[in-house]
Design a protein around this nucleic acid. Structure first.
Lengths: 118, 118
DNA sequence: CGATTGTTCAACCATACGGTTAAATAAGCG
DNA sequence: CGCTTATTTAACCGTATGGTTGAACAATCG
């Protein structure tokens, strides 16, 4: 990937369930690489790669303490992602409105119509 | 990708700038495949693939009208993505608070200290 | 020092991605 | 019917992804 926009790397990082779960762990507290890897049935090397993807997206930063690498969450880059999505909020609200209208019309029809209420 | 969670496909769809731009076009109005492809320097086949990724994520739905395929936005699946991210909102707010505190402390130091104000 | 622990690096593998071109399909037009 | 237009499919290419294993590198411990 050429990764022009930071959104590219953020959304790409979030597109993997293992990485999302790692972020969820980090929301609780910082963890070492080993601790982050433990819940998953993957090798340490694989976990290391996932963490590197999260780092590249700026979602995780690492502080090397002795021989352990402590990873901590930096949610800031998610903000841009949320802002991007937020521009589309009106569309699903609109859709909910339509649904609401449909339900209302349905209820009205039920009330007026054959009276299927118990 | 095995694509277990809908979040996987949504975030994956959003991770590509071409696809995000397509969604932005569709926010304006529905467009045919050809119209969606035109702004980009890619083949129609490539555009078709992008649109299929968006469809798989449920972000675009297609109505075949004669020989043209009209694509329209369905932003609903973004909602889940935004909700997921929203759980981390407190972290960047917290970070902003820290920044705010730092700025405040700095300003106080400036006021008390060497008086660098003009 | 040597052994152990935590992590990365390197090589490799299978599959997916994003792109191409060329051919196939589908629908409107003369 | 044939020609054109709109789109997909198929085959392919180079690179990236997610995974493995085994070796290498650091740092701590005895």
């Amino acid at each position: 990937m050429v990764e022009q926009s930071p959104l590219d790397s953020v959304f790409h990082a979030l597109a993997d369930p293992t990485r999302r779960a790692m972020l969820q762990s980090l929301a609780e507290s910082p963890y070492t690489v080993g601790e982050l890897a433990r819940p998953f049935d993957i090798s340490l090397a694989a976990a290391s790669k996932h963490i590197k993807v999260l780092e590249r997206a700026g979602l995780v930063c690492r502080s090397i303490e002795g021989r352990t690498h402590v990873c901590s969450l930096d949610a800031a880059p998610m903000h841009a992602g949320m802002e991007w999505i937020r521009h589309y909020e009106r569309f699903w609200n609109q859709r909910l409105d339509v649904l609401h209208d449909l339900l209302a019309a349905d209820a009205a029809a039920d009330g007026r119509g054959k009276g299927s209420r118990p």
